[in-house]
């Protein structure tokens, strides 16, 4: 619905309410596509001085062609490490959002394929970019263009009172049939308003402070499964699908911390059928 900025000549990063805002201004005559110009700025900001290659088959990204609901845009990233190369982390970036870096997922088992589903806020017509880090020090990038939502769908909370009342509650969704030794996909939901800090109170003339989930640590029987660093481009009530290889008896522990320093913890036993 909104028109993206088509020309970018300056980039300024301002710390405000704990969040880095990416502000665009001015006009410049630029040869490359606006998306690539934007990417050049983001690459310099997030991966300064490093080469970022096209990902090829090691990393893929699925996104809808259009954001149906600006506040909840489902995204999937899949890694395919091989021939001695581990994929140790993936950064997920919504190029045109005010705080583009949505999340970084760090995989302790970079040698095995990982699939992550999550949900993003999409303010405008934008590329969504995934950048993988490999164990041999390379950065691999893939992108998908997503059209902004129509019909006055805004990337804002639908039920502000409920979001506050339920803050910190977690849910874990597991498949019906769990087999020891066989990878499963689990979904973690953390209820949190993920306030962006860009919500301007018109009458009182102040910005509502940002308040969002910053880190999520997922452990199985004490060993790391996934570590997430996240920011305000993640949807309210962050949702993360991740892979796990269960034993016959095990416990999943999740610790999340938000930008106000509140810590939320939850544990679930996971019982698997024997895998013979």
């Amino acid at each position: 619905m909104t028109t993206p900025h088509r020309t970018i000549s300056t980039l300024s990063v301002t710390a405000l309410a704990g969040a880095a805002w990416l502000c665009l201004s001015g006009a410049g005559a630029l040869a490359a596509s606006p998306q690539e110009e934007r990417w050049d700025l983001l690459r310099d900001m997030y991966f300064s001085g490093r080469t970022v290659e096209d990902a090829g088959p090691l990393l893929s990204l699925e996104a809808p062609k259009r954001a149906n609901d600006a506040a909840v845009v489902p995204i999937r990233i899949v890694t395919a490490p091989g021939s001695g190369v581990q994929v140790t982390a993936v950064h997920l970036i919504v190029d045109e959002n005010p705080v583009p870096m949505a999340a970084t997922f760090r995989f302790p088992h970079g040698d095995s394929p990982q699939a992550i589903d999550t949900r993003l806020r999409v303010n405008a017509y934008t590329n969504i970019t995934a950048v993988a880090e490999t164990s041999d020090g390379r950065l691999l990038r893939t992108t998908q263009f997503v059209k902004a939502s129509g019909g006055c769908s805004a990337p804002a909370l639908k039920n502000a009172q409920l979001a506050v009342a339920r803050m910190g509650k977690m849910k874990l969704n597991l498949p019906d049939n769990i087999v020891a030794g066989k990878p499963l996909t689990a979904q973690l939901l953390i209820s949190h308003p993920n306030y962006t800090g860009m919500q301007y109170d018109q009458l009182n003339h102040y910005f509502i402070p940002a308040h969002y989930v910053k880190t999520v640590a997922i452990r199985y029987n004490g060993a790391p499964v996934l570590d997430v660093q996240s920011d305000i481009s993640m949807s309210e009530d962050p949702s993360i699908h991740f892979s796990l290889v269960p034993e016959e008896q095990g416990t999943l522990d999740v610790t999340a911390e938000d930008s106000n320093g509140r810590v939320f913890q939850e544990s679930w036993p996971i019982r698997a059928n024997s895998g013979s």
Binding site: T3, A154, A156, Q202, I208
Partner: peptide
């Protein structure tokens, strides 16, 4: 609740109107 809802959306609505 309208005022708080608009605090979160007003600028987005204004930009959307401008574009449309």
């Amino acid at each position: 609740n309208l005022q708080a809802a608009l605090a979160a959306r007003g600028e987005h609505y204004r930009q959307a109107f401008d574009a449309a």
